[in-house]
Design a protein around this nucleic acid. Structure first.
Lengths: 234, 234
DNA sequence: GGATTTTTAGAGTAATTACTCTAGAGGTCA
DNA sequence: TGACCTCTAGAGTAATTACTCTAAAAATCC
């Protein structure tokens, strides 16, 4: 039997992801778990402590998915990295929406988060450099940095954006997965111009694998096409 | 003398952007304005109505900055578009952080927002297509779509991300502007691989203009460099 | 099996906050 | 001037919610 502390974190994460942290009270968490509020506060000083713990967990997971590159990197390595990032992002998708609020009030957590971003950027850069060393990518140092930042931003924001547009996805695992796949597709397109050698051979297959054609999923483009809402009435 | 209604929106926007909507109560807004809560609620049914009105305003502004392309587009047109987007995004930067919460509870607002995203995507695509028609960009339809989505996501998320990392920026106009410039830089880098012809001539100058080298501003990379936090202790 | 510590229950509370209600001021038009 | 309408003040409230407190159950230790 897992400890109460981790069970609190599990259900909190689930509820936060599904309904948004703001709509989930500590009493909700306790109730969903079948424990008393007092018990919850025995394990966590306050709500911020729960969020902070979830952040630690999340960070841990990312580091596990993104080990520093050893030796030559293959395109398969890259795809593994990619999937790992988005998997983790997905797990903590509520964080990117609601963490800023806590960063605002908790300087300590903010420092940790800033460090996390910098470390993540550094690690990602190492990976990109590894791919470049393997001849799979061609880009200047500066371009690589810019690419890294854009990849990071995209990965961080994608779940939150899609979830904001379609909250129903939170309840629908299949829809969730489809949106996730589209996120991977976007990152692949982001990197595409820099790919070289064998990576180019796999590119089309990768695109095809992650491209989402389903109009029920595609929230970003209208199915019908080309008209744009009136710009200047109001 | 401007009307009370618009003054409410002005101060609400200011406070929301500076402190986050969640930390700003309706009473705060009234107090900052020097009016009574009752007066505020005479003009707006509830807090959601204020947020919704701010969203309308914001959308309006974006449409004004992004008129549909007429005839051949120049690189200057593109830069104007770019700056317009980020200027607007900046004005409503709190929205991208806090709107999801309201979208969650107000289906009507959500529908409007979804429409806005789709329209914006369509409009942006028209612009990119205009640039392609002018020979400034070379890309397949599919690549152009993916590029548009990535540009959108980046522009939407950039202010929120930087603001989350450095809340102090909200109080510091100079820092704010620097971060904004970096956002433009990132978008320029995003488009760079697809530029052709005259656009390529201007590219380096543009990059140089928007590149932010200042380490006090750069939150994303460590100044010192290359070490990464321990991955597997905790 | 008693003592001690850890964990849990659950009622309760203080504080926040979105929002209401009534009364009145100020302007406008006849 | 008086009727009418728009706008404003400001005290007040109902509901939410993070969090506390006490006591008892459960586990642990000797």
């Amino acid at each position: 039997m897992t400890g109460t502390k981790t069970r609190i974190l599990d259900t909190a994460l689930d509820l936060f992801n599904r309904h948004g942290e703001r709509n989930v009270t500590t009493n909700h968490i306790a109730e969903a778990l079948g424990i008393s509020p007092g018990n919850l506060y025995y394990h966590f000083r306050n709500k911020t402590a729960i969020v902070a713990a979830l952040f630690q967990r999340y960070r841990q997971q990312i580091w596990e998915w993104l080990p520093p590159p050893k030796g030559a990197l293959t395109w398969q390595d890259k795809m593994h990295y990619l999937q790992g990032i988005l998997e983790s992002m997905w797990q903590g998708r509520f964080l990117h929406r609601d963490l800023p609020h806590f960063l605002h009030q908790d300087p300590e957590l903010r420092a940790e988060y800033t460090q996390f971003v910098q470390d993540g950027m550094e690690r990602g850069l190492q990976i990109y450099q590894g791919l470049r060393a393997s001849g799979l990518i061609e880009a200047s140092d500066e371009d690589l940095r810019a690419l890294m930042v854009n990849t990071w931003v995209l990965a961080m924001s994608w779940p939150g954006l899609t979830h904001g547009l379609n909250p129903a996805a939170a309840e629908n695992e299949t829809l969730d997965r489809a949106l996730l796949r589209q996120g991977i597709y976007q990152i692949v397109c982001l990197e595409a111009p820099y790919l070289r050698g064998e990576a180019l051979n796999h590119l089309d297959a990768m695109k095809a694998e992650f491209r989402v054609g389903d109009t029920t999923v595609n929230l970003l483009f209208t199915a019908s096409g080309s008209h744009v809402g009136e710009a200047s009435n109001g």
